[in-house]
Design a protein around this nucleic acid. Structure first.
Lengths: 340, 340
DNA sequence: CTGAAAGCGCTTACAG
DNA sequence: CTGAAAGCGCTTACAG
């Protein structure tokens, strides 16, 4: 049995030798510069083809004046989360147009992992960084920002860092959702919130409050639940709310897993169709439920695209002032759970 | 207004100058080699800290003997697809342990995009490549494989390339699903298949056939539908099946979007609870449906992990013979739609 | 324990 | 149109 010996990877030097030209001529052909005679172009191309030459992107970069790695880092919360996955897809699509690859990693909401990943990315000299900030402080990126690397926060603003942010219109979306419930006559509406420390949770609660206040309705403390992390939390909270002396007649959930848990609890109590429900964030099969769930959708794909576009804009003009870009929460998808 | 001038990024040379030592001493300290006096280690570390020095990973690599980029490429079908996203997460988690970053991109089932992305990855000299093969031929990667880059196919085998593959037990899972339906007395079971050209679709159909054959039941052509690409396709197919003179008494869907479409059609016909339904691949909220959906789950996370582990194993021993690793489709989640 | 020289694979800046 | 030399930021191989 012969041991497969991996053929050594050819370099420009090898191509030059085979084509009988100088290194520099190969470089010119490979980079499609002109000023090389047709015959030589041909010979170099054939030699490169025969050897299976592929330029080494990193080596080329080292001496190149613009020092672009043609890579951007994307620091998500959890890559398997559909919201994060759609952001990634938006980033990928913009990056692909610019011949840029995407380095992706998940922080799992840990500041420590965020720091480590950010360092791994900057050690590779990414041309830009898009992050869904975890924890309370992103100042570890300050030096990188000073050095001119475009860094853009997505979904939540960064803290301790003056950078661009691309956010959803969380407040407006929540307002629209609660207004819709009020349109069905509800005034006693409970808000089921996720982790209070998160920007999105705070904004959506604020939006719900605004909608109620504008209609002269109250949002008593007993109808505000925060810190719901999963379906079980949400289901338990709904059971407690329905046990109140004056239970809410409608529920507004600030996140998709919370909506799902609320739905489950309403079903367990036989309250589906009686207590109304609307939620922030769509999810697969929400329209197959009975009644189908009314939701505000977030355009995570657009968030990703906008963040990536901002990174590239800043690469072209590093002097842009940091901005917060708000992506409209475009659609209230009225299905049945709201009472429609 | 002052124009923010980005501070130039310091190099080892700058650190050496500041610490008053040679370049090589800085290199030793940065790489934690020993044989440097404590005082110098201290001085170098302080200088590096003050300048905010960060080694350039690519530059270091260039001369380094092992030539590891500490990056792997992950070529998915569609990053926003939950199945793909879970694979990514599995790959990420294994890569993170090895201090390796993940380059991710989506082919959208286009051979051309697959080729372009693979080239972008190899131009960056990734240490390994994991791909969910798109199209009919991956021989464009043959040269890279010969050169010793570990390349692993995930979810589907590659074609025109003898490489490792990490696949789900599609056949066994489908068999288990159909057997479960037969356990409820069904013998006239329709199979709702996705794109016939895909390995997963063929295997799952084969598994369903096997289960029926083993019980001496037939799978007549009129009960086999293939090429279903989305919920609408699936719903239409179910309507046609139910219009047959002898409609099926149970449906087996080979993919989650197909299950969802089938569910919708059954609801539209008032057949929920009468015609049984089971599907391959779980999805969010499948358990909130009424009746909740019985499914075979795929462990996409495990597929991703196994593929990444194989890449690293092959980096350590390039002489490993190409293998097909089958990940069990571990669980039949029996909910209500099967008739239980 | 320390460092000067050469070299990784390429581009830049320059000379012919 | 063509190429020899220097250099990007680092590591290697070697000498002291």
């Amino acid at each position: 049995m012969t041991i497969p010996r991996s053929a050594p990877r050819p370099t420009m030097k090898d191509v030059a030798a085979r084509a009988g030209v100088s290194l520099k001529t190969v470089s010119r052909v490979v980079n499609r510069e002109d000023g090389v005679s047709a015959g030589r172009v041909e010979r170099v191309q054939r030699a490169a083809e025969e050897l299976g030459y592929q330029p080494d992107a990193a080596a080329g970069n080292l001496r190149r004046s613009d020092r672009r790695s043609h890579a951007v880092g994307l620091l998500l919360s959890s890559a398997e989360n559909p919201f994060d996955a759609w952001i990634q897809r938006g980033v990928e699509d913009v990056a692909a147009q610019r011949r840029t690859v995407v380095l992706a990693a998940s922080s799992d909401e840990s500041s420590q992992r965020e720091l480590r990943i950010a360092q791994a990315f900057t050690a590779r000299r990414v041309d830009g960084l898009i992050l869904l900030p975890a924890g309370q402080d992103q100042s570890h990126l300050a030096r990188e920002v000073e050095r001119g690397t475009p860094v853009v926060a997505v979904d939540r603003p960064a803290r301790g860092l003056r950078i661009d942010a691309v956010l959803a219109d969380n407040r407006g979306g929540a307002r629209a959702g609660v207004e819709h419930l009020m349109g069905h006559g509800h005034r006693r509406i409970a808000v089921l919130g996720h982790l209070a420390s998160l920007h999105t949770a705070a904004e959506r609660l604020a939006g719900a409050r605004e909608a109620l206040a504008a209609a002269g309705a109250a949002l008593p403390d007993e109808l505000v639940v925060q810190g719901l992390e999963d379906e079980q939390d949400a289901a338990r909270a709904v059971h407690r709310l329905l046990d109140l002396e004056h239970p809410p007649t409608a529920l507004f959930a600030t996140r998709n897993v919370v909506s799902a848990g609320a739905f489950r609890a309403l079903r367990e109590r036989g309250e589906l169709g009686r207590t109304a429900l609307a939620g922030f964030d769509d999810f697969a099969a929400a329209d197959l439920l009975d009644p189908p769930l009314t939701v505000i959708t977030q355009e995570a794909y657009d968030l990703g695209r906008a963040a990536a576009e901002r990174v590239f804009a800043r690469m072209e003009d590093p002097r842009l002032a940091p901005e917060t870009i708000t992506i409209p929460t475009r659609r209230l998808i009225v299905r049945g759970s709201c009472g429609c």
